[in-house]
C-alpha cells in the first residue's frame, strides 16, 4: 500500500509538472504538443549529469546540477516551438509532432554515440544511474520520499501565484484569450508567448527527469517517454487549465499509472490474474473515458493554436 502511494505521488508529480508547463504555454496562446519531446530532452540532460557526476561530488550539488541540466535543455528545446510558431506562424500541431519525433531520435543518436565511444560493443541506447539516483531518495519508514516531490509542490504553488497573482501571469493569460486586445493596451504578444513556451520547456524538462528516475534505475532512450507528455495534456484538459485542479487530476492519473507498477503486491489483484498488458493500458483507457466526459465544457484559452496576426481584429 505504501508502495502504491509512493508511486502514485511520484507519477502525479511528473504529470503535474508537465501539465502545468502545458498550461502556461496554452494560456499564452500556443498549443504545446511537443511536451513529450521536451520531456525526453530534459530526461537526457539530467541522465547525462547523473551518469558523469563524480561520486565524491556530494548529494546536493548532484541534485541541483541534474535539475539545472534538465531544465536548461528543456528550455532550449522549447525554443524550437517558440521560433516556429510565434515568429513564423507555423502549424503548431506539425511542429509539435516533429519535436516529439526529433526528441526521441536525437536522444537515441546521442546516447548510442556516447555508449559506443566508451565501449565499442555497447550499441544500446540505455543510460544507467543506479547509484546517483539514491541521492534523490530519503527513506521514511518504508516510504521512499523523493526530493522531486517537494520541488513539485513548491513549483505548483509558485505557478499558481505567478499565473493569478502577478502582472506577468495576467498579461500572459490575456494573450491566450484575445491577443489583439492585449496588444492594444501595450502588451507585447510575442514576448508573452515566448515566456509561456519557455516556462513549459522549464517544467517539461524537469518533468522528464523526474519521470525516468521515478520507477527505474536505467532508461532506454529509444522508447522516448511512452506517451506521458500526452497524458499530461489530458491531465491539463481535465484540470481545466488551472494549476490547482491539474494537481488533483494528476493524482487520479498517477494512481492508475502506479497500479501497473505495483499490482502484484495486492493479493486480491494478483488473484484476479489479469494480464499485465491490461494494467499497462489502464491509464490510457481512463484518460479517454475522462476526456469523453469532461471535454464538452472545456475552458480552453480562446485564442490557443491561432498564430498571432497583428493586422487581425
Amino acid at each position: 500500500m505504501i508502495l502504491l502511494l509512493q508511486y502514485m505521488i511520484i507519477f502525479a508529480a511528473v504529470l503535474t509538472l508537465v501539465a502545468i508547463g502545458g498550461c502556461f504555454s496554452e494560456h499564452s496562446g500556443v498549443i504545446n504538443i511537443g511536451l513529450e519531446g521536451i520531456m525526453v530532452m530534459g530526461a537526457l540532460g539530467g541522465a547525462l549529469v547523473m551518469r558523469f557526476f563524480p561520486e565524491t561530488g556530494g548529494k546536493l550539488p548532484l541534485i541541483l546540477l541534474t535539475m539545472v541540466a534538465a531544465v536548461v535543455l528543456g528550455m532550449i528545446y522549447s525554443l524550437l516551438l517558440a521560433v516556429a510558431c510565434i515568429n513564423f506562424k507555423a502549424d503548431q500541431t506539425i511542429v509539435g509532432t516533429a519535436m516529439n519525433m526529433l526528441g526521441t531520435a536525437a536522444a537515441t543518436v546521442i546516447v548510442k554515440a556516447m555508449n559506443t565511444r566508451i565501449n565499442p560493443d555497447n550499441v544500446s541506447s540505455t543510460i544507467q544511474y543506479i547509484n546517483p539516483k539514491k541521492a534523490f531518495l530519503v527513506n521514511l519508514g518504508g516510504f521512499e520520499f523523493n526530493w522531486f516531490m517537494l520541488v513539485t509542490v513548491i513549483l505548483l504553488a509558485c505557478s499558481y501565484v505567478l499565473l493569478y497573482k502577478t502582472r506577468l501571469g495576467l498579461r500572459l493569460q490575456a494573450c491566450g484569450e484575445h491577443p489583439q486586445a492585449a496588444a492594444s493596451v501595450g502588451i507585447s504578444v510575442y514576448k508573452m508567448r515566448y515566456i509561456g513556451v519557455i516556462i513549459s520547456g522549464f517544467l517539461g524538462g524537469l518533468g522528464g527527469i523526474v519521470y525516468i528516475t521515478s520507477g527505474v534505475s536505467e532508461w532506454k532512450f529509444e522508447n522516448g517517454v511512452a506517451g506521458f507528455g500526452f497524458l499530461a495534456m489530458a491531465v491539463m484538459i481535465f484540470g481545466q487549465w488551472k494549476p490547482h485542479r491539474i494537481a488533483v487530476s494528476a493524482l487520479l492519473f498517477g494512481l492508475f499509472r502506479a497500479l501497473s507498477n505495483v499490482y502484484m503486491g495486492f493479493n486480491f489483484l494478483a488473484t484476479l490474474n489479469i494480464p499485465s498488458g491490461i494494467y499497462n493500458m489502464l491509464p490510457y483507457i481512463i484518460c479517454l473515458i475522462v476526456l469523453a466526459f469532461t471535454s464538452k465544457k472545456s475552458r480552453a484559452p480562446k485564442a490557443e493554436g491561432i498564430p498571432y496576426d497583428k493586422g487581425m481584429r
Binding site: L80, A84, C85, F88, K89, A90, D91, I94, V95, T97, A98, M99, M101, L102, T104, A105, A106, T108, V109, K112, A113, T116, P120, V123, S125, E222
Partner: peptide, 26 residues
C-alpha cells in the same frame, strides 16, 4: 558504419524534415 553512428540518424533527418515542413506556409 555502426562502430560510429546509429541507424536512428535517419529518424532524426525525417523528424527535422517534418519540423521544416511546418515552415512551408511561410
Amino acid at each position: 558504419d555502426k562502430s560510429m553512428y546509429s541507424a536512428q540518424i535517419s529518424d532524426l533527418i525525417t523528424a527535422v524534415i517534418i519540423y521544416l515542413c511546418g515552415f512551408v506556409g511561410f
